[in-house]
Simulated assay, not measured.
Amino acid sequence: MPVNCSSPRQRAEREAATQELLRARVVAVDNDERQQLLEKVVELNLEVARGIARRFRGRGAEDDDLEQVACLGLMKAATNYRPETGVPFIGYAVPTIRGEVKRYFRDCSWTVRIPRRLQELQGRIARVLPLLVQELGREPTPMEIADRLGVDCSEVREADAARGCFNVLSLDRPVGAGDGDLLLADTVADDEDPHLSRIDTIDQLGPLISALAPRDQRILELAFVENWRQADIGADLGISQMQVSRLLTRILAGLRQRLEPIDIAA
């Protein structure tokens, strides 16, 4: 069973093997056996956790720490997952692992506890500060920063007073030699890259599509891989264009419903 899955078929095989191990764990009565099955699930899906950790690199945390947190998230997902819900394991594990990594950045990397709003404001200040310096030709005052961000000056002063509480790399740190005035903040996106979410969705869709009826799989392939018109799909299947439209609506609605985050933790 491949653990580094690069094709929909391999991902479907990994999902099937994972489900088999988890079902066996449900009925196992020996604690040692249950633990061994859990470890096999984690080992089988380890690359999923590592892949998520890689997507959060370059944001100030050590790579090893990110991978460890992601693996703990995978262990949590494998422990709490319930096969009887019908939700694919990958569909439960990915948001669980990603949530653990985000919580690590939000909670675990601060040596002194400060309000989350100040954590977020520090990031906003770090992003806008180079622009203001360039525009003004000098360091901006707290009032000028506050005006640009649309916040009270007192909040800017409060956030500035809390600087240094973050125990990883500062957003004000230069990226490196040869990069001019480029700061770490300039290289970190304001929001999570939407392409990363797309990759996660594709990973989750594999087992769902494999479980569809052959005709439904054929319709999806012709519509979204071959880019056929609905009329041509209908001619190929011997049905009308209207029937194809209704079938596509039903298939996509079912996939969306299965992809919605569902809390199946114990």
Score class of each variant (00 low, 15 high):
residue 177 A to L: 15
residue 139 E to L: 11
residue 138 R to C: 07
residue 164 G to A: 09
residue 120 E to G: 10
residue 129 L to Q: 06
residue 108 C to I: 11
residue 138 R to T: 09
residue 161 A to E: 05
residue 116 R to A: 05
residue 174 P to K: 12
residue 177 A to S: 14
residue 106 R to E: 15
residue 167 N to P: 03
residue 102 K to N: 10
residue 133 V to A: 15
residue 139 E to G: 09
residue 132 L to T: 00
residue 181 D to F: 05
residue 175 V to F: 05
residue 159 A to E: 01
residue 122 Q to C: 05
residue 142 P to L: 03
residue 125 I to G: 00
residue 107 D to W: 05
residue 113 R to W: 10
residue 164 G to W: 09
residue 139 E to F: 12
residue 149 L to W: 02
residue 115 P to E: 11
residue 182 L to M: 06
residue 160 D to R: 10
residue 124 R to P: 03
residue 103 R to H: 04
residue 105 F to G: 01
residue 159 A to M: 06
residue 98 R to E: 01
residue 114 I to V: 07
residue 157 R to I: 15
residue 153 C to A: 13
residue 119 Q to F: 07
residue 118 L to M: 12
residue 157 R to A: 09
residue 161 A to G: 08
residue 126 A to W: 01
residue 182 L to N: 05
residue 132 L to P: 00
residue 176 G to A: 14
residue 158 E to G: 04
residue 143 M to A: 10
residue 142 P to E: 01
residue 156 V to Y: 01
residue 155 E to K: 01
residue 144 E to L: 10
residue 122 Q to I: 04
residue 99 G to I: 04
residue 160 D to N: 13
residue 164 G to E: 09
residue 131 L to R: 14
residue 165 C to D: 07
residue 101 V to L: 01
residue 142 P to N: 06
residue 161 A to M: 08
residue 117 R to F: 11
residue 149 L to K: 03
residue 163 R to L: 10
residue 126 A to K: 01
residue 161 A to I: 07
residue 135 E to A: 10
residue 127 R to C: 03
residue 129 L to V: 13
residue 172 D to K: 05
residue 139 E to T: 04
residue 161 A to T: 07
residue 141 T to K: 08
residue 164 G to I: 08
residue 139 E to R: 14
residue 105 F to T: 02
residue 123 G to E: 08
residue 171 L to T: 00
residue 130 P to G: 05
residue 103 R to L: 04
residue 98 R to P: 00
residue 121 L to K: 01
residue 104 Y to W: 11
residue 165 C to W: 01
residue 167 N to L: 14
residue 158 E to Y: 06
residue 140 P to D: 12
residue 173 R to S: 08
residue 100 E to S: 07
residue 103 R to T: 07
residue 181 D to I: 10
residue 132 L to G: 02
